[in-house]
Structure formats: structure tokens, C-alpha cells
Amino acid sequence: MARAVTTQRKALNTLAAWTVGLLIFFPILWTILTSFKTEAAAIADPPVFLFFDWTTENYSAVMQRSDYAQFLWNSIVIAGGSTVLGLIVAIPAAWSMAFVPSKRTKDILLWMLSTKMLPAVGVLYPIYLLFIRLGLLDTKIGLTLVLMLINLPIIVWMLYTYFREIPGEILEAARMDGASLRDEILYVLTPMAVPGIASTLLLNFILAWNEAFWTLNLTAAKAAPLTAFIASYSSPEGLFYAKLSAASTMAIAPILIMGWFSQKQLVRGLTFGAVK
């Protein structure tokens, strides 16, 4: 129930909320603005906010770096691949737990969650070693696999909470109608769960895109995604603010947009359904 409030009160709320909102958003806004400045304008003293000569030269400069496309492509392949792979493994698993629960279902779910909490640094060297032995170091396949595994618990959990909301009778109806298990999952469950699957996909793509422990430690030149590309600006290139900003803007823009679409599902996904 919305409660009646005075216009004055509402105006005050609006002012306060917008001020805080813009303050929090400011670093991103500043980055985007700087990306359109010349390098000189970017470090002007005093700083210029809006009134500068807008230019897109930084974007062309970043794009022209021979390797930028490679980093971008790696990010897309790794984030997309790990998410799709994760879904392929997780959909059947979530089906099992949601529709054929057993006494152990809860334990299995919690155990899966616990693997997510394993500190990455605790297994860094073994993974590093295994990657060298298996020839996976600095390969897209290797990184895709690792990101799939670290996000698998979240994918399973999210799908599980969505599937649980689908009435089991509908799947039983499909079974009565002569559908095999494959038909049941393909023609009935999956289409019904499309919204849930889509938001799971979105959130995990975001998480994989932004992952910055394994992507930094298991890649060098060939398979490095944008996280590593940006990290390479650490110094001394980072002092070219405008180019840094352009590269950053390109790395975060697609995710910001996806993130805004998935904000509702975000809560469910990140709290394992504990807050809805």
C-alpha cells in the first residue's frame, strides 16, 4: 500500500535520493566523461566537467591496439562459454533436485554452496600446476572450465529456486501425455522456465565477465580477457587517463546494461534464494 505523502516530503526524498545516487554513480560517470576528453583535458587543472571538446579519439586508439579485439573476444568466449556449459550441467541437476527430491537433496545443495566458499587462493597452486600439466594454462578452454565450476553452485541454486515454483503436476501431465524425460525437459520444463533460465544466464555471464582472480592468475597473453587487459593499464599506461577511461567504459558498458536488466534476479541469485 502506497501511503499518501505530502508533495513537499516527496520532493525532499527525491532530492536526497538523487544526490546520494549521483554521488555513488559519479566514479562511473566521471570515467565515461573522461573517455571523451583529450589526454590534456583529462588531467586539466582545475578539472573540467562537461565543457570540453568531446572526442572519440580514445576509443579509436584503444580499438586500434592490435590486441584489444582479442581481449574482448576472450571475455565473450570465456564468460559466455562458462555460462552455457554451466547451464547444460545445471539444468538436469536442478530438475532432479526440484522435482524428485530425496532426503539428501538439501545436503547436496548446501554442499554445492560450500564449494563456492572455498577460498580460491587455497587451491591456487594445485590448479596452476594441473593447468600446466594438462596444457590448459593461458587457454580459453581452461579458463572457461574454471569459471564454469566456480559459478556452477550459483547456477544450480538459482535454477533450483525457479524450478521449485513450477507445479510438478504439469510435468506429470507431460509424462501422462507420453513425453519421455528428454521431451519433458525440452518441450515443457525449459520453455516454462525461460524467464528463470534467462536471468540465471545473465547473472552468471556478469559474474564470469567480472571474475578477477583466476582470469588474472591463469592467463598470460593468449587467453587473457578484459579484466587482465585493464590490469595491464596499471602502470605506466594508466597515466593516460582518457585512454584508460575509454578502455574501462568499453569493458563495463555491456555489463552495466545487462546488470540493469537482471537487478531483480540478482538478489535471489546472490543470496541463494534466502532473500526474495
Partner: peptide
């Protein structure tokens, strides 16, 4: 928004 910004 900040939550979606890559840590690096």
C-alpha cells in the same frame, strides 16, 4: 551500478 563494474 558499481556492483557491475569489473574489479580491475
Amino acid at each position: 551500478a558499481p556492483f557491475f563494474v569489473m574489479p580491475t
